[in-house]
Structure formats: C-alpha cells, structure tokens
Nucleic acid binder design. Sequence first.
DNA 1: CAGGGAAATTGCGTGCACGCAAGTTTGCGC
DNA 2: GCGCAAACTTGCGTGCACGCAATTTCCCTG
Lengths: 218, 218
Amino acid sequence: MTTPPPGLRERKKQATREALREAALRLAVERGPDQVRVEDIAEAAGVSPRTYNNYFASREQAIVSAVTADREARIAAAVAARPAGVHLADAVTEAVVEQYTNTSEREREALLLITTRTALRDAFLDATAGIEPPLTAVIAERLGEAGAHTARVLAASVAAVVRIALEGWLRPAGNAGAAGSFGAGGLLVPSGSLPDQLRAALAPLAPAFDAAERRTRP
Amino acid sequence: MTTPPPGLRERKKQATREALREAALRLAVERGPDQVRVEDIAEAAGVSPRTYNNYFASREQAIVSAVTADREARIAAAVAARPAGVHLADAVTEAVVEQYTNTSEREREALLLITTRTALRDAFLDATAGIEPPLTAVIAERLGEAGAHTARVLAASVAAVVRIALEGWLRPAGNAGAAGSFGAGGLLVPSGSLPDQLRAALAPLAPAFDAAERRTRP
DNA sequence: CAGGGAAATTGCGTGCACGCAAGTTTGCGC
DNA sequence: GCGCAAACTTGCGTGCACGCAATTTCCCTG
C-alpha cells in the first residue's frame, strides 16, 4: 500500500541524500563547523557542489538533518502506535517526548556541536517544523474526516510548542533576546530536563485536544 | 515608563529602517520584484548596500516588512484594548482578525505583489512569527504571574495557527505541497475570506485559552 | 532490447549575506 | 566646549544559493 518497489532512481536519491548528511556531520565534527565548505561536503559525498544544493538549501540544513532526519516519521509512527483508547493529548505528548529522548550517542555529540553555533541552532529549531505534516496526518486519522481542519491546527501548535521547548532547553545562559516588555519576574523555569520541558510546554494544549476529541466522538 | 526621550541616534535608525522599507516596496511595485537589486534599494534610501544588510537579513524581508512592520505592536495593543471581562480566546481572536482585516489600499497592492513570488510569500508567512513576543506579553498580563509560561505557549500556538490561515488564504490553486499521506478527502475549505479563515483556524485553540484562564482565576 | 521521454546531475554566471577591520558619528561626563 | 567610549556605517573579501541550459542517467513501453 505504501511501497510498491522503490526503483533504482529513488534509492539512489536517498543514498545521495544520506551520504551528504553523513559527510556534512562528520566533517563538521572533525574540523569544527566553520571549517567545512559545501565544496568539501559535496566532494566527500561524491557529487558536484551544485547537486548538493539540489538536496539541501543551506549548509546548516545538511548538518542538522543528520540529526533530525527521520524524527518526523518516527513521531507520527509513535503516535499511531498508541492504543486508540488513550487521550489524544497524552498520546501525542508521550510520542513527542519519546522521540526527543531516545538519543543515540552520535546524536548527542552532534547536538553538542549544534549548540555552539547560532546558525546551526536556528536550523535545528527550524527543522522542528517538519513534524507538522506527519502529525497532521495521524491526528486527522484519529479525529476522522470532520476534524481534518482541526488536526492541521493542532499539529501546527504542537510543532510551535516543541520548538519553544527546545529553544528554552538548549539556551545555556546567553540571552538578551527580544523578550522585552516583561514585568520584573524573570524567575521562570530556567532550564529543566528536556522531557520535563516538553511535557510542561505541551500541557496547556491538552484542553484543545480533549475538546477536539470530544467533538468528533460523541 | 516606556519612552524617556528617544534620542537622536535611535530616531535616525528608525528613519533609515523606514526609508529602506519604503524604497524596497516602491521599487518592487514599480519594476516588478525581480528587477530590484539590493544595490538599488540601498541607493534609494541613501545608504551603502552593506548597511542595508545591517537592517534586513534578506531582500524579501525588506519588501515584506513594509506591510508587516507594526502589525505586531498593533495586535498586542488590540488585545490589551479589549475589556478584561471577555474571554481571552475571543479577545485574541478578534484582535487578530481586526489587524489582518484593516488593510490600507497600499497594503492590498503590496499583498498582490507578494503573492506573485514564492520567496516573497515565504518571507511574508515567516513574518507572522513576529507577533509572538508581544502576544506573549499581553496574554501573560491577563493570566498573571503564574501563567507566564502558559502565555508563551499560547502565543506561539496562535502565531503558528495564524500562519496556517494565511498560508491557506493566499494559496490560489497551485499546490502539490508536502501534504502527502492523506486519505482521499481533499475537500477541505478551499479558500474562504480571510477573517473566516482566521476565525476557523483559531477556534480549536479556544479550549486551551479557557482552561488557562480558569486556572489562574478561580 | 531498443528508443524516447522524464528526471537527475552538472557547470556557469549572478546577486546576495555577512565577518572583519577601518572610518565616522553620537552621547555623555567633566 | 572637550574629548573619549560606544554605537553605527562602510568597503572589501569570501562562500553561498539558485536560475538556466546542456548533458547524463534511468525507466517504461512497444
């Protein structure tokens, strides 16, 4: 139903994509992120620099995608895997937490690297937007035809909120951002563990999920 | 409490910023967006091309910001203006609708231009993220100290959802996006009026607002 | 298994974003 | 007024993203 047979063309494309990801990350770790030019990555992956840009729109994207690659698909799968009985809100929250917690050694190393450069951090955060489409699909499946529109909204919210959580998490101390017009109370969760951050951030959305669920299952 | 006296330095900076915005939009309208180089904009505003990039990170940003400039501040103000009695959800929804509906003639002309180029469309959509910080501030004000964290989450969700609505709105027909794995039902709201789109998109978030409001006002 | 049409790769050229290190302006305390 | 430190501007150089058009690679059909 999903994979007739991929065909050589598609397989080669995926192989190239992965080779680029891999090369980008490896080189970045070896030499430091600023000592890697796209030319190097392309060469290491055996393609022309121009082709590199057919796969990734920026140098940062390639490096970051080595970490975020299939998180999207895995989150969707993780939601789908939860029994249909549990609250949607819980299913989504746990699926997200799970996927951002099961980190391989290599992944942690990469994250360490990513935090050192603002451009990489931004690319990493932007990548969270990628979970939206698959999330939309699985949520829509649970809500049924009538809730397709709501699903999109909820998925977008989740993506935005996950981004917030990650943002807050990998902010060590350096700040001075655009927070601006706040009172005097800067005593908010400085930086807990990632799972906690994620759960806390997603919690306020739960009522929206519950309401949506209630509407389509009388 | 907010503006001691701006000082010459700051005023000059704002003037330059506005000059650049203005020049960018004007030239883009006159000649078409692709016939405007950064050099032209900078020259028209009386600064060096290098300085241009100290104000805007991309050519598109300058053009788009002529439209989105102070929407951020206005939305926050519009929320704050609503009487404290009304539901937060309603206050936010109406404030947003209001700000995206009061369009000047020049603004509509610009939007027409923006829709013609993908890069501009993307920049325009990205700009909606700018409403998040001020929204966070006003929502936090209504929720009180304890809800500061929730405010951030809700604001981010609103921003994400507004983006969705705009996206759906200025998509004429061309699509083939990354929607991907959907069943067979592609019969979702093709493209209503903008206010309707916004209201419909924000509706599913209402329960989250209500719950937040209930938690901090027993 | 041959050939045609579609998809992917590549080189080239253009404009752009941005770090860096002067040069210039503004604000402020004396 | 005077001068100094911080903020802003500018020119230069580098690497990069991407449109375009020519070429190569793959898949499908007869």
